[in-house]
């Protein structure tokens, strides 16, 4: 035992000496840094997601350098290398596969952007609506208007709303042009460099999701104990200050889980925009199917939807934990 302890003493001395050396310091730093990285059952999903995003990011950088390339190319390449082990390649299996994968990847980006923008704009509108809805004050006209808006958009089908916005706005724009000489909206929008269908489709989604989100935020506001309002008012804060400094900051942490639902809903609902000719994921897969006669196109589209929706839900889960307040609502698992 005595010998052993002496040996360990010597070892620690050597280690101390090594630490003084600069180059070995770096080694120890690297060891510490990578020593913290472990792949376990729990974080396996995060690793896959991280790798996927890394590949997509590399692909995105590549599109800036290489002309006529797609951001999904690196992923296809990896699959190709894997198949090469067995003596195949994707193009050899079926020449249509890479075309479909690339075509749908572009459409998936469009779907993703449309739903993200819709949710973000809808959130702003919804917050205003929710504050009007919970207000006990004298803004009665506004309250009825907001309630009517929410009721209408929650009780009619989204497809009808999309068609109504698209054809309604187009028709009104034409009528206004005829009688007052106001420039036609489709020309104005395309002059701005935007697609007319995408803009109006996004507008319809914003109007729809705002109604749902308004109800979510309203419920969130009502879930904050009345004591918080009482205390704020007793301290001399005005009604507006109470709302913006006390109630809403707490509400936003409470509504992250139900809003996750809404984000996913909007993403999946964006497939209805195919009806007004927006070339998003569903529309693109239909057109590819009509060219190549492959039902698998829809399967690929489903996988793309799944990847986007799943990673969004993962990220909002992360957000939930980040925004956690001790002793309030959402808790850690």
């Amino acid at each position: 035992m005595a010998v052993n302890s002496k040996e360990t003493e010597i070892e620690t001395e050597i280690e101390a000496e090594i630490e003084k050396n600069d180059s070995s310091k770096l080694k120890i730093f690297i060891k510490r840094f990578f020593g913290n990285i472990r792949i376990t059952k729990k974080n396996l999903g995060w690793w896959c997601l991280g790798l996927l995003i890394l590949m997509l990011f590399i692909g995105f950088i590549r599109t800036l350098i290489v002309p006529n390339s797609n951001y999904i190319d690196p992923l296809i390449m990896i699959v190709d290398w894997f198949l090469l082990l067995f003596g195949y390649s994707l193009e050899y299996l079926d020449y249509r596969i890479p075309i479909i994968l690339r075509g749908l990847a572009n459409a998936a980006t469009l779907s993703f952007y449309i739903s993200l923008i819709s949710v973000a704009l809808g959130f702003i509108l919804a917050a205003i609506l929710a504050v009007i809805l919970v207000n006990k004050g004298k803004v009665y006209g506004f309250k009825y208007l907001a309630q009517a808006y929410v009721d209408f958009f929650r009780s009619t089908p989204l497809l009808v709303q999309i068609l109504m916005v698209y054809f309604g706005v187009s028709g009104m724009s034409l009528a206004l042009n005829e009688s007052y000489g106001i420039p036609i909206l489709s020309n104005v929008i395309s002059d701005m460099g935007l697609s007319y269908e995408i803009t109006l489709g996004t507008l319809a989604l914003v109007l729809n999701t705002a109604a749902y989100q308004a109800e979510i935020i309203r419920a969130g506001i009502l879930s904050i104990p009345t004591g918080q309002t009482e205390a704020a008012r007793a301290l001399g804060l005005t009604q507006g200050q109470t709302m913006s400094y006390v109630i809403l900051p707490q509400t936003f942490r409470m509504v992250v889980p139900p809003l996750t639902n809404e984000i996913i809903n909007v993403l999946l609902n964006s497939s209805l925009l195919s009806n007004i000719g927006v070339f998003e994921l569903t529309k693109r897969s239909r057109s590819l199917q009509s060219v190549y006669f492959l039902w698998e196109v829809f399967f690929v589209a489903a996988i793309y939807y799944f990847i986007i929706a799943f990673s969004l839900s993962k990220f909002t889960k992360r957000l939930e934990i980040k925004l956690r307040i001790p002793g309030l609502g959402v808790s850690y698992d």
Binding site: Q228, L235, L237
Partner: peptide, 26 residues
């Protein structure tokens, strides 16, 4: 001033920020 039975501290703010809010805004 008023002190409540259920304390009614602002849950999303630290102790310092709780005391700061009325001093700053009111």
């Amino acid at each position: 001033g008023m002190v409540f039975q259920q304390f009614n501290l602002f849950m999303h703010l630290t102790v310092g920020a709780n005391i700061r809010l009325p001093l700053e805004k009111v």
